[in-house]
Design a protein around this nucleic acid. Structure first.
Lengths: 202, 202
DNA sequence: GAAAAATCTTGACAACTGTCCAGAGCGTCC
DNA sequence: GGACGCTCTGGACAGTTGTCAAGATTTTTC
């Protein structure tokens, strides 16, 4: 596709800047991330940010929206291909432990921005959208476990999501203490999510 | 106790400033809270902060330590006085829903600072201490439920804490959307924590 | 009551922030 | 070739930040 309209090129630049912003936010956190730092992690100078985005908030919002396209379908293959409840839990837990280690910056960014949304109303709607997407993701896992005969769901979708999410955030905080701690956190996360899932669908 | 040593007075000033910092941080969030704003919410001027604290980090750290003395014993009475598993869960859930509404700023601050600790190593140890304290708090609730004949614990203490904490954070984020949303979040939180507790100790 | 010490205010500093803008560089079209 | 529009740079702006220090004020000590 050589034919790139002007609109396409603009959208591509916005994506480039968003990727750079995601990297920077995941590294430094929202409180310490400035527009210049984001631009420094991109091929452009700091002025260009305001050429493609009206606001800092608009850029961050764009980032958060971009994030959801990366995350929310992560377990779909495992859900589709599982044949036993045991196998489903094993696969899900393996993916979760791996993404904790591989995509740590992305996850750090997500929890940071979700917390920021408490103080910054401009972020709330987008954060809420993603939360619902992630909740549906967990819901599909639970529903599939029920379908495979693991039992019945003892809590609703929102409760299951919040509980699993709590475990993931706990692991992410623990993983920030260093490489060894991250490895251990990933192992514990796997065990704990498995135990929890078996408790809430039985 | 009229006899106040010099050390006592210093400690009292540090507490006053910490209280003001807790208020400000809970209102504005870590990213938007400056030393001048903290001082403005206290009877002192901004320069005095560096008279009692070497650093901004030292002040924040002191705040976090102060926070733990407020929070970690919140459910002890309910745990001690409960006579049935049902009654225990009801009491705990009632306290939790109430503190979500009454101490929202304090809880906002806690989740904000815990996330900041991912990016700011200077906060990690204190945050970890509090996390362990809160975990023990949840552990006492679960252990008491078992003691009262609710069944056996299906997950370990850390898992139970992370799951309940996930529900609480979910409710806090939802509560930030306004007064009506906060009321609904408190109700849902109660129902969900009760359902979760009954699932993990059965 | 004077001297000394502790406490607090005020203003300054360098560094940083988000935002904006004048102009340079560029390719495209008449 | 000249004019035009899109893209990007780099600097400037007003405001904020954490930090510090000189001096005023209060409290303590002798």
């Amino acid at each position: 596709m050589v034919l790139t309209t002007r609109v396409d090129k603009v959208e591509q630049r916005r994506l480039e800047l968003a990727e750079s912003a995601l990297r920077t936010l995941g590294d430094l956190g929202y409180a310490r991330t400035g527009l210049r730092e984001i631009a420094a992690n991109s091929p452009f100078s700091h002025g260009v940010v305001h050429y493609y985005f009206h606001d800092k908030i608009e850029l961050i919002t764009f980032c958060v929206r971009h994030y959801k396209t990366i995350c929310s379908r992560r377990y779909d293959d495992a859900v589709a291909s599982a044949t036993t409840p045991q196998g489903l839990v094993d696969d899900v837990v393996a993916i979760m432990s791996r993404t904790l280690l591989d995509d740590a910056a992305l996850h750090r960014l997500w929890y940071d921005l979700r917390t920021q949304s408490i103080f910054e109303p401009g972020l709330r709607e987008d954060v809420r959208d993603i939360d619902l997407l992630l909740q549906a993701m967990v819901g599909r896992i639970v529903a599939r476990a029920v379908e495979l005969g693991a039992g019945q769901a003892l809590v609703d979708e929102a409760t299951a999501y919040a509980a699993v999410d709590g475990l993931f955030e706990q692991a992410l905080v623990a993983a920030s203490r260093g490489d060894d701690a991250a490895q251990e956190a990933a192992t514990l996360l796997g065990r704990r999510v498995a135990a929890l899932l078996r408790s809430i669908v039985a």
